[in-house]
């Protein structure tokens, strides 16, 4: 503690604080999605059958592939951190690019999935949706809101990972000072974790 207080004075650096800050930020993200999960729970209870019917329309293959892709990406970013800690800079950077690639695959998948829905005239406020029952409208509203907000987080995560990779290349993030990568990885795991909840809630539970 005393040693670190001095380090703070001379270098203005405290890795423990940075990590604690990131964890707290992750709490806030979970609560942000928590609001949507709450709405989901309420309407699922209210319109049980219609939620069931609407969820059958989702393509489980798309969802399952994306789940696997995100799990692989989480593993890759965790390995990137270990690689950097062991000073294997090149390997670490490759693994980060692998993570970004997975994220990209996820987004492309999502694009096709959403695109198919739009083609069938299923999107918030669409003509078709207005004619459906209330439970269907709310299910698709939640589907687009939840996966949309999640996709936004995937995009932000990708940008952060690319910034980290650039900083590793520039030598600013290295084996002695890796907290930036660690925090980026934590954030990426959050993105993964939220999907792990979204996938069964939207695609699997019937």
């Amino acid at each position: 503690m005393e040693h670190q207080a001095k380090a703070h004075l001379l270098e203005h650096r405290d890795d423990e604080a940075a990590k604690l800050g990131m964890w707290l930020f992750i709490f806030t993200e979970i609560l942000l999605f928590g609001g949507l999960f709450l709405v989901y729970a309420v309407y699922r209870a209210m319109y049980h059958t219609q939620f069931h019917e609407a969820s059958l329309e989702l393509n489980v293959v798309f969802g399952a592939v994306n789940t696997i892709v995100l799990l692989v990406s989480s593993m890759a970013v965790a390995m990137a951190l270990t690689a950097l800690q062991e000073n294997k800079v090149k390997l670490s950077r490759q693994l980060i690019w692998l993570t970004v690639l997975c994220a990209l695959i996820f987004m492309v998948n999502k694009y096709f999935e959403w695109g198919a829905k739009f083609e069938h005239d299923i999107y918030p406020g669409s003509e078709l949706l207005r004619k459906l029952e209330h439970g269907h409208i709310l299910y698709y509203g939640l589907y687009f809101a939840m996966t949309g907000l999640h996709a936004l987080h995937v995009t932000v995560g990708m940008i952060i990972l690319i910034v980290v990779e650039r900083r590793i290349k520039a030598g600013k993030v290295h084996a002695e000072k890796f907290v930036f990568l660690e925090n980026a990885a934590l954030y990426w795991h959050l993105v993964d974790l939220i999907w792990i909840f979204l996938f069964p809630l939207l695609y699997l539970i019937t």
Binding site: F33, P124, R130, L138, G141, A145
Partner: peptide, 29 residues
């Protein structure tokens, strides 16, 4: 721990206005 909840709630209001999702609209359930 409390502010994110209002954050998402306000976002839902915005989404309601822009896309007519129906979270809080009795006409849409």
């Amino acid at each position: 721990l409390a502010t994110p909840v209002v954050g998402i709630t306000l976002l839902m209001i915005i989404a309601e206005r822009l896309f007519h999702i129906g979270f809080f609209d009795p006409a849409l359930g």
